[in-house]
Amino acid sequence: MKSEPYDSHGGPVELPLSSRAFEELLDVCPFLEVDDRSATLHSFGSRLKQFWLPDEPILYIGKAGTSLSARTRAHYSTKIGATGPHAGGWWLKMLTALPELTVHYARHSNPGAAEDALIDQFARQLSHASRSNLLDGNRVGPFANVRIPGLGRIRSYLRIPARSKYAFPAIPTTLTMFVRGEKRAASWHPGNGRLGRLGLSTALMAELVVPGMPVHIEALNIATASSTRRNDNNRLRLTIPSEFLTASRAQLSLSGRPLQFIMTTESTRFCRPAPSEQPRNRARRS
């Protein structure tokens, strides 16, 4: 996908953010935040600019795993902020220049590998000046490619599988967490689909998450958390505010003992109590 105005004018292009598209996004995502604050057109635009590459005409690289026509149709028809039919590259729809974009295509027997190779090649050729302006110097790719090969799908938040979401608030909010005894804030969004998102920050994710290794999360009530002074490595303790502690969540916390989530960076979905906390009836069955 490339931007036509760049070629015709031959110079860098400032981020052509559409205020109308931003309003549409807010209609779908009223809790949109930038750095834990409600997003404004200015703050959202400022953040997108940290991904924008003014001297690059290629804005997005995507694969069509099956039908190229269906893939482009799904991309065209996905509304701003919607997760389907295909949300990949949705930042393109925040641009006033959208109608002027062109879709180029090529055939390959392994579209996934070709996509990764093209993004990698794109990153290798990016100028130092462009790279230095990016928010994250490790995330180098076309503007609208949120997923960069080799960096994992998510670098700033943990995905919480649907079957583990019961212990989390049903609405977006900020949770308190303890990492090695230090108190921090974490944004929580239950997600519109199957996965919830626990925002930790890229730096903390890089510190806590080791590919292939589990991340332990203990969901605690506030009283328990305040008395917690353990400094376990790679363990994250999370408080669930009392107003969100419904009867079902309390029951699932195994009689007041902390429920332990074990998340992995891969596809991953573990939600199980620590071995010493297995319910007795389950132990008898086994």
């Binding site: 482009t72 109608p99 062109t102 879709v103 295509y105 055939r107």
Partner: peptide
């Protein structure tokens, strides 16, 4: 970019086409 990765360009369409 296509050349460097051994892909053969097949075509292009304007957005929404």
């Amino acid at each position: 970019l296509f050349d460097q990765r051994g892909l053969e360009w097949e075509g292009a369409v304007k957005w929404q086409h």
